[in-house]
Structure formats: structure tokens, C-alpha cells
């Protein structure tokens, strides 16, 4: 309990009299993003004009919204209800998303994959596997480690079970692959932030396979049913339920992996690496990540 405080010593506890507290810390903050004082705001006149301009825009938007609310085709709910038995699922939302409008979900997961590739392109290929030496310096994990691992042991399996349950129930209740994937990703984030699991970089083949699995599953299924039904993603009779369930499972795993991949830089944060900053940030980061790590076992960052 006293470990963290004694290890940092009394020097860290910078005493600040309550008088200057509201302004004192701000003044010394070097980053304009973390807390700014409005120096970057435009001139007051311009801001007033902008505000005035936004009033009619808001009114226009409200009017448009009011108009759009009434123009929904009243036949759609009946149509969905009528054809729901053909979808193989009893939850209308899942029926629409994975059967009537399967390509919509296909494009959604494709967008996610594109986002992940974009994040990978920002990854500077710094790979210190295992727990970074400086993690405890920023997280103070030394004192909290048993507690942290206890809550991980409780929350991660529960999240995993709940994710499986949500995927399974997606066919009959409001739930589904994206929600399950997000929950699974939450568990993954927990593990990676706690330093238990390092998100694999672009170099890892399994990550690529699983992340692409969502899109690939959709496309392959869509093409595979072509000889039977003659239309892309039109499931043959009787096959809809197992196909949808399989696609949902692949989607959930893919979404989870992609979301955790957005945290690919997490463990390297405290160890800010000046050497990597010197590297040209526009020069093929994926290629560098694929190259063998010069010092894979080195836990210390310069």
C-alpha cells in the first residue's frame, strides 16, 4: 500500500496552495491540446457571426428532420414482419442486417478493416514484447498488481461469456456481432492496458487472417450461394440460420481483433522512443514492421 508513495518520494507531491490552484497548473502546461486558454480562438466578432450563422442552420436542420420523420414508407415494417420467417432468425434487426441487407453489413466490416490498416500505417514498428519496463512508472502498477490481476480474472472471462451469449442471442433478441465484438474488444483492451497481452502488430499473420475473416467470410458465402439462388448473399432455403450464425461469429471475432488493433501502440507509449522519431514517418511503416525486430528481447526503451 505504501509502496507507490514511498518509491516516488515526497518530491513528487508538489504542494500547491489552494490560492493559485485554478490558474497555476494551467500556466505551465506546455501542450495547447491538453488545456488551452483560448489563444487559438478567432476574433470575437467572427465567433459572434458564426454563432448567428448557426442559428438559421439549426432551424433548417430541425425543419428537415421534422419532414424526414414523416416520410418513412409505412409499408416497410409490415414487409419485414411478413418475410421475417424466411430469414431464418426471429430478430427483425438481425434479419435485415444479415439477410435482406447483407451487403450493408459487408461494407461496414470492410470500413473497419480499412480503419485498422490506417492505424497500422501509423504504427512505427516499435515492438517490445512483454511488459515495458516503464509501464509501472506511468501506471504505478507495482502496488496494484494483485488487485488488477484479480479484477482481470473476473471481468475478462465474464466479458468473453457475455460476448458469446450476445452473438448467440443475436438471432432472436436485440444483440449481435458488433456488440459482442465491442465487448470482446473491451476485454482485449483491459488485457493490453494492464500489460498482460500485447496487441500484435501488422506483422502477425494470424491477426491479418482473423481481421480479414469477417469480410472474407461474407464474400465467400455470398459467392458460394450464387449457384443455388442466383443472387449475391441470397441464402438457400433452410441454410439461412446456420449461415447467419457462422457469419455473426466470424464478424464478432473480426470486430474484436480490429478494435484491439486500434490500440496497437499502447505498450510503447511510456517508452517514448526518440530514435523512432528520427525515422522518416512516411517511409513504409508496414514494411518496417514486417522486417525482423532488431532487438526483440530488449525490454528497455532508450
Amino acid at each position: 500500500m505504501m509502496g507507490p508513495s514511498s518509491s516516488h518520494g515526497p518530491g513528487v507531491s508538489s504542494p500547491s496552495p489552494s490560492g493559485d490552484a485554478p490558474t497555476g497548473p494551467d500556466a505551465s502546461s506546455p501542450s495547447p491540446l491538453l488545456r488551452d486558454h483560448g489563444e487559438r480562438d478567432g476574433p470575437p466578432l467572427l465567433r459572434w457571426l458564426l454563432g448567428l450563422f448557426l442559428v438559421p442552420v439549426g432551424i433548417l436542420l430541425a425543419l428537415g428532420l421534422k419532414g424526414a420523420a414523416g416520410s418513412r414508407d409505412p409499408r416497410i415494417p409490415d414487409l419485414i414482419a411478413k418475410h421475417l420467417p424466411e430469414t431464418g432468425v426471429s430478430n427483425p434487426v438481425t434479419g435485415v442486417l444479415l439477410n435482406f441487407r447483407g451487403y450493408d453489413t459487408l461494407l461496414e466490416i470492410a470500413v473497419l478493416v480499412a480503419a485498422m490498416v490506417a492505424v497500422w500505417s501509423l504504427d512505427r514498428g516499435q515492438r517490445h514484447f512483454g511488459l515495458p519496463a516503464s509501464a509501472s512508472a506511468s501506471g504505478g502498477a507495482g502496488g496494484g498488481r494483485p488487485f488488477l490481476s484479480a479484477i482481470l480474472r473476473l471481468a475478462v472471462p465474464t466479458a468473453f461469456l457475455t460476448a458469446v451469449y450476445l452473438t448467440w442471442m443475436g438471432s432472436s433478441e436485440p444483440a449481435g456481432a458488433f456488440q459482442a465484438g465491442a465487448l470482446l474488444a473491451g476485454a482485449g483492451v483491459l488485457l493490453s492496458v494492464a500489460g498482460v497481452l500485447r496487441p500484435l502488430t501488422a506483422a502477425a499473420l494470424p491477426v491479418r487472417i482473423v481481421a480479414a475473416g469477417g469480410v472474407a467470410g461474407f464474400v465467400v458465402t455470398g459467392i458460394a450461394v450464387l449457384p443455388f439462388t442466383g443472387a449475391f448473399l441470397a441464402y438457400p432455403e433452410g441454410w439461412a440460420y446456420p449461415l447467419i450464425l457462422g457469419l455473426e461469429a466470424a464478424l464478432a471475432v473480426a470486430v474484436a481483433v480490429i478494435l484491439v488493433e486500434l490500440f496497437v501502440d499502447v505498450p510503447s507509449i511510456p517508452a517514448h522512443d526518440a530514435a523512432l522519431d528520427a525515422v522518416d514517418p512516411y517511409g513504409d511503416p508496414l514494411g518496417r514492421a514486417l522486417a525482423p525486430d532488431p532487438s526483440p528481447a530488449d525490454p528497455e526503451a532508450p
Partner: peptide, 14 residues
Amino acid sequence: TICYLVASEALAQG
């Protein structure tokens, strides 16, 4: 857990 973690961190942060 959260209570412990936040409190010990706050203490460590001074």
C-alpha cells in the same frame, strides 16, 4: 478494485 487502484494512484501522484 477501482477504489484501491484509484486511491493508491492518487497517493502516488501526491
